[in-house]
Design a protein around this nucleic acid. Structure first.
Lengths: 143, 143
DNA sequence: ATAATAGAAGATAAAAATGTCTTTTATTAA
DNA sequence: TTAATAAAAGACATTTTTATCTTCTATTAT
């Protein structure tokens, strides 16, 4: 469904959101350990998200990644779009470039419904909410 | 959503189904042209589906791929499972191996619903039906 | 039987995704 | 101001996916 990159991104964001509530900033190493992801790889991904403004960071001692309050309401759809683009939401299920309402692929209509469900789910899912569940130890991020 | 391999497989199956109604057998070249896919690649895929019994074939002159009547009711889910496995239907949205009801990932419940929708859609979608739409030129398979 | 046809199979290649390593730059605590 | 820290950036490596090429084998029409 999502690329691995995107899976890591979502997991990292939820973890960072949880830790940011207490004003903490978290380093790459801690994040990598917490979500069981390759350190340098997750660094790349977060730098990307940082450039795109979805997460904040500071260099130097006491530095690290964090989420400002307003950004903790960022949705899963925001992250997926930033990493994987919007092809999951708009692309043809059979990979046809020219597929559209007027000239649909055979599974076009069936697919549209599912795509919309996925989008609504991802749009409704807020990072801040997931991090609350994580905090209560109701959910987990390690593979 | 699906691998390219799987997209090609679905498109090829729908095309073969449509041509099989008149008892025709279609060669790789014709299939590749009809669905705009790399010839040798689609050959590999169909050989795989043939081994798994989802499509039939005959070598030699007048040979080619075809779908026996009973197999035209094969579902999209059958094809997706044969090619991509069942991770789309059963896997964790965040790629966590240990994610389950008792120890769920943060988006587990939200995801389950969507996954079920996808499965139901793919299970309900029958190759034979799609090929009818294709025959009426209501849908297309070329990218 | 033979030649033509067409799928089967394996080797190879190219591209994309994923993962690792090293150096540089910015920041801050002391 | 300096040393330590941590992100930023780019090069490099590996793996997986996608695609291509060549040879082999089965089938059938003649």
């Amino acid at each position: 469904m999502f690329s691995k990159t995107c899976e890591y991104a979502i997991r990292a964001m939820i973890f960072i959101a949880q830790r940011s509530k207490t004003g903490d900033r978290v380093g790459i190493k801690e994040i990598a350990k917490a979500i069981d992801a390759p350190e340098h790889f997750i660094a790349k991904i977060l730098q990307d998200l940082s450039r795109k403004g979805l997460v904040q960071s500071l260099k130097g001692p006491t530095g690290g990644f964090f989420l400002e309050e307003e950004f903790s309401q960022c949705s899963l759809a925001d992250i997926v779009t930033a990493i994987d683009g919007d092809k999951l939401f708009t692309g043809c299920g059979l990979g046809l470039r020219n597929c559209n309402e007027k000239k649909p692929c055979p599974i076009h209509d069936e697919f549209k419904k599912v795509r919309e469900d996925i989008y609504n789910m991802l749009e409704a899912g807020r990072i801040g909410e997931f991090s609350k569940q994580l905090e209560k130890n109701l959910t987990f991020l390690k593979r």
